[in-house]
């Protein structure tokens, strides 16, 4: 069995798959970070209904299996007539649904990572900010979040890594991202199941290493600038 030519045949398809994985992941991370940050502000807000909403969101979506989210979004939403209004980066409807499911779910975890960081900042800091006359939003952006940032990075990166791996669930819903390519490779190269698996695992490892590397870079930068 000749390895090199087989790798040569598999690689383009795997790379294609990872390109889709990358798009899914990046869009989901962006979306879930924005939503998660808004949710975290709600959870620490002085307005009780906001707090209640943030808490309910986290409780519902953090405790729902991701597959349930996918089935609900991919199969349930079209039944309700909800369709993505637009697609982007050359992605189709199924990919957009996957992004919606993934970021709705991940936002709950992002929210909790940010909130845990906020809780590491002493309450006296927020009181002093309010006493100076800063509004709630200004207190968050100028005093709490900059100090919470360093404490937020490690848990946030774990959430991001989980999200990257979770994007694989989209394969079960007809999205040809990296994991989806694995199924089709196994069909086309039944003799090289191990090889296909290792190539795929190596791809995910590279993604995760890149994420972890970026985060330690950010942490170091932040440490120096203080």
């Amino acid at each position: 069995m000749d390895l090199l030519p087989q790798i040569g045949e598999m690689l383009p398809r795997i790379l294609d798959g990872f390109l889709v994985t990358l798009k899914l992941t990046i869009l989901s991370l962006l979306l879930s970070t924005v939503v998660g940050a808004v949710l975290a502000s709600m959870r620490v807000s002085p307005v009780a209904p906001f707090r209640a909403f943030g808490t309910s969101y986290v409780n519902v979506f953090r405790n729902t299996p991701l597959v349930v989210m996918f089935i609900f979004v991919v199969e349930g939403l079209p039944q309700l007539g909800v369709r993505p209004r637009f697609t982007t980066l050359g992605l189709g409807y199924f990919e957009m649904y996957a992004i919606i499911a993934l970021s709705t779910y991940t936002a709950a975890f992002v929210c909790e990572a940010i909130r845990s960081g906020v809780n590491t900042v002493a309450t006296g800091q927020a009181e002093a900010a309010r006493a100076v006359g800063l509004t709630f939003g200004q207190t968050l952006t100028h005093v709490i979040l900059p100090q919470a940032f360093r404490a937020v990075v490690p848990p946030l990166v774990s959430v991001y890594i989980a999200c990257t791996k979770n994007s694989a669930i989209a394969a079960a819903f007809g999205v040809l991202e990296a994991t989806g390519q694995l199924s089709s490779l196994i069909e086309d190269f039944p003799g090289s199941v191990y090889l296909a698996f290792f190539l795929l695992a190596a791809g995910y490892m590279v993604l995760v290493f890149v994420l972890a590397g970026l985060s330690s870079l950010v942490e170091r930068r932040w440490a120096v600038s203080r």
């Binding site: 800091q125 009181e127 309010r130 006493a131 006359g133 800063l134 005093v143």
Partner: peptide
């Protein structure tokens, strides 16, 4: 917030922005 701007406060534990 506007009213608090007119009231200065000094805390036992200083609470300077770290």
């Amino acid at each position: 917030a506007k009213l608090r701007a007119d009231v200065g406060m000094v805390f036992q534990s200083f609470n300077l922005f770290a």
